[in-house]
């Protein structure tokens, strides 16, 4: 037998727990506070997992670096600097950042499905928190992890000839956070509708490659036929790449490269693109939270 804790600690309620009454009046404020703690718990879990798997985290960063230095370095020799504004590596950088944040965002979706299979989601649902809040926390965790991974890549701006300009880094970080959020929300939307991780993987394997290629992150979509433009205009990754590209163009004008999204010849301004990304993300999250919140 282990030494029992003093009975009082168990029989009485935790000291920091406010007296919760019926779902009215005074409960409001503490409830929100509790729910913030729950969101924080989910974000914390993601960060702990990130720290618990350093090798895995490192490997996820290797792929974008390979693209940046091998593909980027190799093609840079072939492509004249003038055709893309700056060098090819600078052109490639937003696409590589997109790849970096995309992987962890997708993992959030996969994990939601596997957590549901393993019964972990049921453990989460047992918490005295409204269900949509749990999904919100999951999304926040995924967004943060993706942004953190992207931030590591930002350390490489010097290697491709961009300055370590604080404002440039900050705007890129904000842009990445925005795209991470939208991608995570979209991944969660998919995850709440699918039961099996294999289906999720298969679907993404089918869709991710064309989305990435048509995002304008690797080559200008402008040279492709018209249908490609239409697809690009409906491609959230293209908006993300555009936003990041314009962050670079704003601070380093001589490296400005052509953007991808065009609405019948008109290029939407960066704020509009960002707002659209945010809106899509929020709508996706709301819908996913709604699906997730349905009681059994």
């Amino acid at each position: 037998m282990t030494a029992p804790a003093p009975p009082a600690s168990d029989a009485s309620s935790p000291p920091d727990r406010p007296a919760v009454r019926d779902g009215t009046g005074p409960e409001r404020v503490p409830r929100l506070w509790h729910e913030l703690r729950a969101v924080h718990a989910l974000v914390h879990r993601d960060l702990l997992r990130l720290a618990a798997q350093p090798v895995h985290t490192g490997l996820m960063l290797v792929q974008p670096m390979l693209y940046l230095f091998i593909l980027g370095g190799g093609l840079a020799a072939l492509i004249p600097n003038s055709s893309l504004g700056g060098g090819y590596q600078t052109y490639l950088f937003p696409g590589v950042l997109m790849m970096t944040v995309q992987t962890p965002a997708i993992m959030v979706g996969i994990r939601l499905i596997t957590d549901r299979q393993s019964g972990y989601v049921r453990e989460l649902l047992m918490a005295p928190v409204r269900r949509p809040i749990l999904l919100l926390g999951t999304c926040a965790g995924g967004t943060l992890v993706a942004t953190v991974q992207g931030a590591v890549l930002l350390a490489l701006v010097g290697a491709i000839g961009l300055p370590y300009d604080p404002l440039l880094l900050l705007t890129l970080l904000v842009g990445m956070m925005l795209t991470s959020f939208t991608l995570t929300a979209l991944a969660l939307t998919l995850a709440v509708t699918l039961d099996r991780p294999e289906v999720f993987n298969m679907l993404l394997g089918l869709v991710m490659m064309p989305l990435l290629l048509l995002s304008g992150g690797f080559f200008p979509v402008g040279n492709l036929p018209g249908w490609a433009h239409t697809l690009a205009a409906a491609n959230p990754l293209a908006y993300g790449v555009d936003v990041l590209r314009r962050c670079i163009a704003a601070r380093v004008p001589d490296r400005a490269a052509p953007t991808t999204v065009e609405w019948s010849g008109w290029q939407p301004p960066v704020l509009l693109e960002g707002t659209l990304l945010l809106t899509v993300g929020i709508l996706a999250l709301l819908w996913a939270a709604h699906r997730f919140g349905r009681p059994e």
């Binding site: 935790p14 000291p15 920091d16 727990r17 506070w33 509790h34 729910e35 703690r37 729950a38 924080h40 718990a41 989910l42 914390h44 879990r45 702990l48 997992r49 618990a52 798997q53 957590d115 393993s118 019964g119 972990y120 049921r122 453990e123 989460l124 918490a127 005295p128 928190v129």
Partner: peptide, 29 residues
């Protein structure tokens, strides 16, 4: 639950901490 579910990548203490926070306990508590 009948079906056991823990986060196997985290430590015993981390699992408990996350869960306690989900229940709205303060960090110290």
């Amino acid at each position: 639950f009948q079906q056991s579910a823990l986060d196997s990548d985290l430590t015993a203490e981390q699992n408990l901490h996350i869960h306690a926070r989900l229940y709205g306990l303060s960090r110290r508590h």
